[in-house]
Nucleic acid binder design. Structure first.
Lengths: 144, 144
DNA sequence: CTACTTCCTCTAGCCACTAGAGGAGCAAGA
DNA sequence: TCTTGCTCCTCTAGTGGCTAGAGGAAGTAG
């Protein structure tokens, strides 16, 4: 049996995050020791590893919740799981396309920088006037 | 002079967002009509267009705040502005690299899916066992 | 004058955590 | 036995960048 700290170590998920997942019902409420500490078994460790991995692949928690529900029911068709993954793939591709447009625009902007004063700064100027852009990168989801 | 709705139209920034920007000090408090409505001039329109454009390029509001401070002082060297843009470019590139790894992993996962039952679902299985992954895509920032 | 639209302020919610307060349990060393 | 230091507990609030909704006032067209 693992303490929350050990589970955190084993899965790479931070302790408060594990408690958060419990709170939102993604992980079951674990047994406790006499001193009220959480105790986890192998099943929860696997479940958390699943969550971690899916998060690393960018799945939102709601999708992960669905996937977990499915994996609890091995008789069902996997078409729904496939659809979730496919949706995620589409989202990832869209983000890549958008980010590549941003990257190109930023590179263009920086190439023109003459490192003079702000008054002649291409970076500031380009940001101030969308019309100076090569491509239309606007109207996205607002990445960082 | 523009009403908040007209400013919103002109810049593509939603009305509540404009008020939000004012609240956090990114836009100055505008003049008001007798009926307490906001009235904007050309200067604020330009400032908001700048913010919008920078947001579209993924700059966080804090960077935008810095850039605006700089653009208010045209005598200064633009090296700092350049640095902010360079930092943003690095961040964008890192995100692209990460997303491409995710995309590949998702594609690999989906290719293997035989559309049978959950019990033999590669999607679920792959998510459950990180060791099945081709590359090491873990340890990122948790995209969506 | 009435109906409709735009605007006002204020509060709360979104996602997926993260940080911090204030306290209790527990193991090792002096 | 006491103390030190670590892990753990619960609870609340904060993050970024908005978005949604309540409840009301102002402006405009017919």
């Amino acid at each position: 049996m693992l303490s929350i700290g050990q589970l955190s170590e084993a899965t790479g998920v931070k302790v408060p995050t594990i408690r958060y997942y419990e709170q939102i019902g993604l992980l079951p409420e674990p047994d406790r020791t006499g001193g009220n500490r959480r105790l986890y078994g192998e099943a929860t460790r696997k479940r958390l590893a699943f969550v971690r991995h899916a998060r690393d692949l960018g799945f939102p928690l709601e999708s992960i919740r669905e996937l977990l529900r499915m994996s609890d029911d091995p008789e069902r068709s996997c078409v729904a799981a496939d659809d979730i993954a496919r949706r995620q793939l589409r989202a990832v591709k869209a983000r890549i396309a958008r980010l590549i447009a941003l990257r190109d625009e930023l590179e263009r902007m920086l190439e023109m920088c003459s490192r003079g004063t702000i008054a002649e700064c291409r970076v500031i100027e380009t940001l101030g006037d969308h019309a100076l852009c090569a491509e239309d990168h606007a109207g996205g989801e607002g990445e960082v």
